[in-house]
């Protein structure tokens, strides 16, 4: 899937919350069409990394470059950069006072000023693709967790983002709903969407990733192809981490 064109360049990124360093010297290049999965124990900084890429956190060092444009707290028109990045959160964060359709068209209509008619048509097509067309006029509270998350994905997609960020999007879901969300993401990967995914679903990571980046204590510990990472991790820390998911190893 991946091309040689760099979509995102992260160089020597450093992020601190007051005195605590959360990310240290992170450098990653992400190519057009690539699917990168960030793995690591809780608190290793993977969610924070995603939030930095979307400008939701300011950074204390290094640079993030999206399509040649530098992105940091000084970026005045950060909202324009964000329009190129879709983000899906663990807690869905649909807007409860709007219907499914209204949730989806808000960004395209208000941020991108696209014509409502065209946006609605596209939103309906996307809803059809994730099997939620019949839910377009209901409110989020009437949806199951899995349905909410699929709507959240459609909401991000309708902006035509260059890059999609997924922050533990299945962590709050029941097991049978996890699948429906992951299927949508697999479809996106197949269509060549560039994605950075934070997840704890190891089988899924293995299936979807072009590259695994393993973080611990705010640093990149290991970076490799999924086959290599899951069958023969190079570092002791990654081995330990993967062992947590092997029950016969206990």
């Amino acid at each position: 899937m991946k091309s040689s064109e760099k979509l995102v360049e992260i160089k020597n990124l450093r992020k601190k919350f007051e005195a605590t360093t959360v990310l240290e010297d992170i450098s990653i290049d992400i190519h057009q069409g690539e699917v990168v999965v960030l793995l690591g124990p809780s608190g290793c900084g993977k969610s924070t990394l995603l939030r930095c890429i979307n400008g939701l956190e300011n950074i204390q060092g290094g640079v993030i470059i999206l399509e040649g444009e530098k992105l940091n707290e000084q970026t005045k028109r950060i909202h324009l950069v964000r329009q190129k990045i879709g983000m899906v959160f663990q807690s869905y964060d649909l807007f409860p006072h709007m219907t499914v359709l209204e949730n989806i068209i808000l960004g395209p209509c208000k941020a991108q000023k696209r014509a409502k008619k065209e946006v609605v048509k596209e939103a309906e097509e996307l809803l059809l693709r994730v099997g939620l067309f019949d839910k377009k006029d209901v409110y989020p509270r009437q949806l199951s967790g899995g349905q909410k998350q699929r709507v959240a994905i459609v909401r991000a997609l309708c902006m035509h983002p260059k890059l999609m960020l997924f922050d533990e999007v299945t962590a709050a879901l029941d097991p049978e709903m996890v699948r429906e969300v992951l299927d949508v993401m697999l479809k996106l990967a197949k269509d060549g969407t560039t994605m950075i995914i934070v997840t704890h679903e190891m089988q899924f990571a293995k299936a979807i990733a072009d590259r695994i980046i393993f973080l611990d204590h705010g640093k990149i510990v290991e970076e490799s192809e999924p086959n290599v990472f899951f069958s023969s991790p190079r570092t002791e820390r990654a081995k330990q981490f993967l062992n947590l998911f092997e029950f016969d190893a206990i």
């Binding site: 979307n54 909202h79 941020a111 991000a156």
Partner: peptide, 15 residues
């Protein structure tokens, strides 16, 4: 998180 969801859609703070 509602505010962040809005910002991540590329809306301005005012929007």
């Amino acid at each position: 998180s509602q505010i962040e969801a809005g910002l991540s859609l590329g809306l301005t703070k005012g929007q």
